[in-house]
Nucleic acid binder design. Structure first.
Length: 721
DNA sequence: AAAAAAG
């Protein structure tokens, strides 16, 4: 019997709860509900709301219903026993696969009452958890809130008048969103014990360090709080999300230098490789230019002397194919300030505080057009400052038309930023939020994997900018809790990726919910014709920008290909990772990422993993572990390929070679940042050599090949580059 | 194959 993910209705495994997944018409009023009243999927019948939501009591009851630990699936249970893919939270934790772990620690039964392990405060604290909601200080901000259990339903919350006054700045609050909600974590979604175990016990410095609650993944630790900001020495400030994705001002190659380098003609650049990276689309038909046309500069008009900008003919497939763009060179922006570009004083000041005193080329190129209200396609290589390129003018625009004066409750959001992964959405918010706050606008993150409560309540208080991922945004729309009809600016970050199979349709559905004629901004380091369908439907006469002189020749990345025997892969990786400095390893599958991380840990390497089979709390925490340096090695799937910034990754290992040149570019773009050097090592079996050649060719990357086996000195040298 | 939704 085939393992269909979408069994036919009535099939043995059919579960109405999941039937709407991915279907264009979601919220499926035609779905069957459970016939038994006690079942969570029970549908009382026609008059009922389309989704019967649990109330607090039901939730509590549900929590109590949970089987005792002893009744749960055996810890040794393999993944195959896991329920259908959809049921993430219920699945036995990963670490079930980690038999080694459980040996060196007491049984679960012992654990609850056991004495503190190492220097970690007693687990007693944990067992007391239910009490948390009472003494937990942070929610005290919401001074009047009833205890969780009694809290009014979401629908009632509009009535709370006090909110807008005592609301702490979003800047201060942000970490909470990230934090797995207590209730959920404990009652519904409590990380399985298996999950917990996988935290590297020995390295865990203290309980406080590891609980997401105290540690607040990613935020406070890494940078001074907003309050402290002014006093924090700018230069010492660690990366700030995307901001740091670009070279530190002081360290990047001077523009003068870059300008002097014989500028590689724009004609040679990216568009060429875009031509045949995917099967011909019907849209492009016979008009697809052959590769030999590439050098024909008539497709790439340069900026004319009078500065007149060639325009992009929206809907013209041939032009889009070539992604005709205005190339801005670094020398064009010398001496230009953000103020010159049309940004207001507050924003300019905030940008400086964020470490961006003057615009980068991609920013200088796109900001005026965004402010002018045009649709924009922007391409700038990884770490070239794209987040600010759209974030800052977006805020400026929102402020101009309407302003921050109108802060009424439950106002509808006016801008939307879509990202492909939750981590990226978070990171974008870390950059955009302070800019927005500097002019009194609010942002909120809307992404899955965390309870929706906080997101919904933020919406009900009223936010101006939404930053999130497709699934949860659609979910909230379906629930009637999110209304995009006033969204006048929409940004797609990693826009080409958002047009990939699986993303395109949700993105289209979301864009259709936004205000007609609203401005659309599409950005990506590898922006190409793949966005054609979106451009055609949603954009009007977009301005297309890219930055000249950003090619591999100017890169600080050393690309290596290691031709190896497949059976040696793990050992070679172990040897490569035996070094100082942060290493990011990409794996094709989640399972291998997990396995490899475990293997490295067993070998004494401080390593962890990042992939979609982890719950969001773990994902955030594990990424933070690399950021903070608590681990040196992160093994990730392509969830970490795009946009994610971690300072000082100096080695990227591709345990599995990517299939697409764009993936290669994005993965390798995690290193060599801030003008620092970085190395990318791709492991391939020799039969893959030819494919690899083609891929590198398309990516316009020059890499050196080398054959190696375990123990070869060459590997140690590589590790120490 | 991965990613993106569950109160």
């Amino acid at each position: 019997m085939p393992q269909s993910k979408n069994p036919a209705v009535g099939g043995k495994n059919y579960d109405p709860k999941y039937s709407a997944k991915g279907a264009p018409n979601r919220g499926g009023s035609n779905n069957q509900g459970s016939k038994s009243p006690g079942h969570r999927g029970f549908r009382a019948d026609e008059g009922a709301p389309k989704k019967a939501r649990w109330n607090a009591d039901e939730r509590a009851a549900k929590a109590n219903d949970r089987p005792a630990y002893g009744d749960r699936p055996a810890y040794g249970a393999g993944r195959s026993e896991r329920p259908a893919t959809g049921a993430r939270t219920e699945r036995p934790a990963y670490n079930n696969d980690r038999p080694a772990r459980s040996n060196d620690r007491p049984s679960y039964g012992d654990r609850n009452n056991s004495a503190p392990r190492g220097d970690r405060p007693s687990y007693g604290d944990r067992n007391d958890r239910p009490a948390r909601s009472n003494d937990r200080p942070s929610y005290g901000d919401r001074n009047n809130s009833a205890p969780r259990g009694d809290r009014p339903s979401y629908g009632d919350r509009n009535d709370r008048p006090a909110r807008s006054n005592d609301r702490p700045s979003y800047g201060d609050r942000a970490p909470r969103t990230d934090r797995p909600a207590y209730n959920n974590d404990r009652n519904n979604e409590r990380p399985s014990y298996g999950d917990r175990n996988s935290a590297p016990r020995t390295e865990r410095p203290s309980y406080g360090d590891r609980a997401p609650r105290t540690e607040r993944p990613a935020y406070n630790n890494d940078r001074p709080s907003y309050g402290d900001r002014s006093s924090a020495p700018r230069t010492e400030r660690p990366s700030y999300g995307d901001r740091s994705e670009r070279p530190a001002r002081t360290e990047r190659p001077s523009y003068g230098d870059r300008a002097e380098r014989a500028p590689r003609s724009f004609e040679d650049r990216a568009p060429r490789r875009s031509n045949d990276d995917r099967p011909p689309r019907r849209d492009f038909g016979n008009d697809r230019p052959s590769r030999s046309d590439d050098g024909d500069s008539k497709f790439y008009p340069k900026r004319s002397e009078n500065g007149a900008k060639p325009t992009f003919a929206g809907g013209d497939d041939v032009v889009l194919e070539r992604l005709e763009a205005i190339a801005t060179t670094a020398s064009d922006v010398v001496g230009v300030t953000f103020g010159d570009l049309g940004l207001g004083e507050n924003i300019v000041r905030e940008l400086a505080a964020l470490g961006a005193p003057s615009p980068f080329p991609i920013q200088a190129a796109t900001i005026p057009d965004v402010l002018a209200g045009r649709d924009v396609l922007g391409r700038g290589k990884t770490g070239s400052g794209k987040t600010i390129a759209f974030g800052a003018p977006l805020v400026e625009k929102l402020m101009e038309n309407n302003g921050a004066k109108d802060r009424k409750m439950a106002r509808k959001p006016r801008a939307l930023i879509l990202a492909p992964t939750r981590e990226l959405a978070l990171q974008i918010d870390r950059t955009v939020q302070p800019i927005a706050r500097s002019v009194g606008l609010f942002t909120t993150q809307i992404y899955g994997g965390v309870p929706q409560y906080r997101q919904v309540s933020a919406l009900q208080r009223g936010v101006d900018i939404i930053i999130g991922t497709a699934g949860r945004i659609e979910d909230l729309i379906d629930q009637g809790r999110l209304d995009l009809s006033e969204v006048v600016v929409t940004v797609l970050d990693e826009a080409d990726y958002m047009c990939d199979l699986g993303f395109l349709e949700p993105v289209q559905r979301i864009l259709r919910q936004t205000k007609k004629g609203g401005q659309k901004l599409l950005f990506s380091a590898t922006l190409d014709k793949g966005v054609a369908s979106l451009v055609k439907e949603f954009l009007t006469n977009p301005a297309v920008h890219e930055v000249a002189g950003e090619d591999q020749a100017s890169s600080t990345i050393d690309h290596r290909v290691l031709v190896i025997e497949h059976r040696d892969k793990s050992r070679i990786i172990e040897e490569l990772v035996n070094r100082d400095g942060k290493t990011l390893i990409f794996s094709r599958t989640r399972a291998y990422a997990e396995q490899l991380a475990e293997q490295l840990e067993d070998a004494g390497v401080k390593a962890t993993s990042l992939h979609g089979d982890l719950n969001q709390a773990r994902r955030t925490r594990n990424l933070q572990m690399l950021t903070s340096g608590r681990v040196n090695v992160l093994v990730a799937t392509d969830v970490a390929a795009r946009g994610i910034h971690v300072d000082d990754i100096d080695l990227v290992i591709q345990a599995d070679a990517p299939d697409e040149y764009k993936t290669y570019l994005h993965r390798s773009g995690r290193t060599g940042r801030a003008g620092k050097t970085g190395t990318v090592v791709t492991l391939i079996p020799k039969q893959r050599k030819r494919r690899m050649d083609e891929l590198l060719d398309r990516a316009e990357i020059e890499a050196s090949y080398m054959s190696a086996g375990p123990g070869d000195a060459a590997i140690q040298e590589l590790a120490n580059v």
